[in-house]
Design a protein around this nucleic acid. Structure first.
Lengths: 351, 351
DNA sequence: TTTTCTAAATGAAACGTTTCACTCTGCACA
DNA sequence: TGTGCAGAGTGAAACGTTTCATTTAGAAAA
């Protein structure tokens, strides 16, 4: 009795074709198909037969099988908090571009600034045979795997794990210099601790050093983890006398913070840039070639991405530097009173 | 002679521990370890032994092996042009969040609006045993795989492939209504064809219908693939008489376009919103809880993401609707002359 | 014609899981 | 004491590749 048993290899089955199917179809061995698929040396006549069979069956390599056997996946994991923040979205974008250009792919994991999730994501990517991990994390105690190459962004873990970052110190200096050039006499530096640890800390150091150098008075207000934004408003109000702010320039550690501070100031009846000028950090724009709305220290996002990828794929792990600082630049937006001509690219600001 | 042959199973080897190692360490069988790892029913004493061994060896599941055997990966692929565009970045973010909440992961692929790359990405994700594909693509001839569940965003392929989109038609209507309410008498609709096919086309239809209904005059300018942005400037200049623009309201098919048009207008000496009011589409903001800079029709990004994920993971494929339109809303930014009170959330606009 | 050599095809083993047909143990019941 | 049964552990097979020790075929040399 001819039952349609489940084991029966009916020719009309629907499952995906495998290399064996291709081999059978082409009348060659498994190894030969593998060699064709991987571009190894194969007799021309055989190659044609195999390629024909591949086309006929619409065969696709199964990467699980391949990864299992080879132990690597041509995939690099990127751990970032989210892609709703423009700076992170840009990083993810440019890292992906750099990876794809080299034949790699990106597995994206979000940590949402959460220590637990950072560990969770690390655990997940380790299970996936990724060939490397690029991480922009906040948990200082995070245990990076030792059996997979890692590169961090903005956070230095150890000499064994290269860290790529913008030149934060110099960014701070540039901001102070700019304020001095714009004639400011009393500045404020604002930052939130929870989202600004380690390397980016140096923004303050550079800022402070330049202020001292230029003889400009300055005040610092730091918020630590969990403190509400309203503390900044309290701080600003303390420095408000007769409707006038003590400060004529405010340096915010991120553009995000800058925008919030500007909104705060607006609520207090203080005009930007007329009453107080503001400079942020990161270089956020709505769309790639549009203007900066907030004057800012621009991070070289594409260079950072490129450098991370280069280092994570570097063959000679020992030769990698342990810290790379990439140059930043100042870009004028609508929150500073630029002397006269604004360079062409910043014209026609959106009001 | 005791040679250190490569086959020798030296106890101090550095490679990752496998389930077999755990089984040996715990003194149980492979199957039992598998059951523990997957949370199946196992005698308490055995479970403890296995868990102890897992901890001791720092064992991690190898997903390649698991995926190979099970044929699925708890991974959904998302194909979008990039994450430098805020709207796409937001989509990627929210889709990821929705997936992770359900125990899934996201494999992100960028197409850069390129037809070839879209096909390439499709090929790649198919090789990776992904359990589904969410695609926001532009190639109308793209061949979506039939053996993997697919959901598209903003582009309708066929009744078999569900499409999730904002209510574009109604968004167009709302924009026209708003302009009418703001007292506009002559409107323009601007769009670029290459980045606005299919479903989003309906923005124009809704806009036109409402204009007719309200008796408002309007003009349409469409750019097709590859036409330079300067065509819009030509168009606007044609409608410029004695330094005054014919139009008192411009509806742009995307916020991105709106920003560029505003810059153009600024270059022509025309003030927004004093001389002409502008409404965009998408709902782009710098940071989540900050104001809309451009007045806009806001897409329900989070709902779209949630819906896509729900449909791609839906067990009952046949029960899925083939087109889902999610409601949009108008949000005031700085590019329209709102009558009086702007709702709380839009106060304190960044200038 | 026989021998030697080379290039390339072959196919079995292995990668780390999951699955499932068996086996084993201990207990309830007669 | 014997039988039956349920619950749970066991271990071999299989998933689709890559790899590599063999085999084979064909050409060159003798």
């Amino acid at each position: 009795m001819k039952s349609t048993g489940p084991k029966e290899k009916t020719p009309g089955r629907r499952s995906k074709p495998t290399m064996s199917d291709v081999a059978r179809e082409a009348g060659v061995s498994l190894g030969t198909v593998s060699n064709v698929v991987n571009g190894l040396k194969v007799n021309e006549a055989y190659r044609l037969k195999v390629e024909e069979a591949i086309r006929k069956l619409d065969y696709q390599v199964n990467n699980s099988g391949r990864n299992l056997k080879t132990g690597h996946s041509y995939t690099i994991a990127l751990i970032i908090p989210n892609t709703r923040t423009p700076h992170f979205a840009a990083l993810a974008n440019d890292i992906n571009v750099a990876l794809v250009r080299r034949g790699y792919h990106m597995l994206l994991s979000f940590s949402d600034y959460d220590y637990k999730q950072e560990e969770e994501m690390l655990r997940f990517v380790r299970q996936n045979n990724v060939d490397g991990i690029i991480a922009l994390t906040y948990n200082p105690r995070l245990e990076l795997p030792v059996d997979i190459p890692c590169v961090t962004i903005d956070r230095f873990f150890s000499a064994q794990v290269p860290c790529v970052t913008a030149d934060n110190y110099n960014g701070g200096r540039i901001a102070a210099e700019k304020f001095a050039e714009l004639g400011c006499r009393k500045l404020a530096f604002l930052r939130i601790g929870s989202v600004l640890t380690n390397e980016p800390n140096k923004r303050k150091d550079g800022f402070a050093a330049a202020c001292l150098e230029y003889g400009v008075d300055f005040d610092v207000k730091l918020l630590t983890d969990g403190e509400p934004m309203s503390r900044f408003e309290d701080f600003l109000r303390e420095h408000l006398h007769d409707g006038r702010l003590d400060f004529d320039g405010i340096f915010c550690a991120t553009d995000n913070l800058a925008y919030r501070v500007i909104r705060m100031l607006s609520g207090m009846g203080i005009k930007v840039p007329e009453d107080v000028q503001v400079i942020g950090f990161d270089g956020i724009r709505m769309f790639g070639d549009l203007n900066y709305i907030c004057s800012t220290i621009v991070q070289p996002v594409t260079d950072i991405a490129e450098t991370c990828v280069e280092m994570i794929l570097s063959k000679d792990l020992a030769a990698r530097p342990s810290l790379v600082c990439l140059p930043v630049r100042y870009a004028a937006g609508g929150t500073t009173r630029e002397p006269e001509e604004i360079p062409e690219e910043f014209r026609g600001d959106i009001k």
